[in-house]
Design a protein around this nucleic acid. Structure first.
Length: 294
DNA sequence: AAGAACTCCTGTTGGC
DNA sequence: TGCCAACAGGAGTTCT
């Protein structure tokens, strides 16, 4: 899926089209994505004004005037495409399109009062949408156990050390765990660990010092997580296969990858003679340099 | 209770 | 060219 930078890029693309508009019609073309749509989904959205469009971790949150929040998750292959109602039905560079403009896996279309329409396309259907009362959002099962927002103010070496203290799980797995830090995925975990010079196989607990105090390693890791995410947001995210921005254009942070999908290439760390290796942790590829990541 | 494995689904890629 | 296995950016559930 899109990780945090991709979701944030999508949010920024949807925001000008959605905020202040109402749902004029909702075209729900199948009963479920990863999970069933909520009861009377289209009916509950229709007529509602969108007050704000936010993001929590990898979730998009559309605040509706009626007090509910439309929660959207892109899974692995979910994409939103905005048509402003004036131009051609599909943006240039919009792949997976078929002749006549119909597309496979277009599962939901939002038609808005301002003339825009927004199509949700998701080949693997690992994404989902639901409606949650705004008042109870923080206690909802999807959000109750979510960890800290890495681009918020909380993430620093001390917090990371406290979260990881006592954990024997590999750093890679700890960073992927959305209950600790929410929003990182496979790409940005690999990139952050390389920038921090830390082995993905190191026990997470080794980032906590005496009495859970942060080590220099913890401080460094917290700093590079923020750095890599910020750079990726500025680049419009990373496009590998399916991800595209809401206008159909592509992100370009993939060109800045130092290790991800670069097996056998020389390590980009200045002075390092290592080679990027791939290993499998919890069934997922990890890319790293064993020479400079310790 | 932590940690790893399995699961959902479709599409693409690389090896033979 | 075709066939088949492996793999893909996630994460809830189920095991050990």
């Amino acid at each position: 899926m899109p990780e945090l930078p991709e979701v944030e890029t999508v949010r920024r693309g949807l925001e000008p089209a959605m905020v202040g508009a109402r749902f004029a019609a909702v075209d729900q073309r199948r009963p479920d994505l990863r999970f069933p749509f909520p009861e009377r989904f289209a009916e509950r959205l229709t007529g509602q004004e969108i007050i704000a469009l936010g993001r929590r971790a990898k979730y998009l949150l559309a605040d509706l005037a009626g007090g509910e929040v439309l929660v959207m998750h892109l899974g692995m292959t979910g994409r939103f495409i905005v048509h402003d109602g004036a131009g051609p039905a599909h943006a240039p560079g919009d792949f997976h399109r078929e002749a006549g403009g119909a597309a496979r896996h277009d599962h939901v279309v939002f038609r808005l009062s301002n003339g825009a329409s927004i199509t949700y396309n998701d080949a693997r259907r690992f994404g989902f949408m639901t409606l949650v009362p705004r008042a109870g959002l923080g206690e909802h099962p999807l959000f109750r156990n979510l960890g800290i927002e890495p681009l918020g103010n909380e993430l620093d070496g001390a917090v990371l050390a406290r979260l990881f203290a006592g954990r024997m799980t590999p750093l890679k797995a700890a960073l992927m765990d959305q209950r600790l830090v929410a929003g990182l995925g496979n790409i940005y975990v690999c990139e952050a660990l390389h920038r921090a010079g830390l082995s993905p196989e190191r026990a997470a607990g080794t980032l906590a010092g005496k009495a859970g105090r942060p080590t220099e390693r913890a401080r460094k890791l917290a700093a590079v997580i923020r750095e890599v995410l910020q750079e990726a947001v500025e680049a419009g995210g990373s496009t590998l296969r399916d991800y595209a921005k809401t206008d159909g254009s592509l992100g370009y942070f993939q060109h800045a990858f130092r290790v991800y999908d670069r097996e056998h290439e020389p390590c980009p760390t200045p002075g390092c003679r290592g080679v990027i290796r791939r290993l499998v942790q919890s069934g997922r590829s990890t890319f790293h340099c064993a020479h400079c990541q310790r």
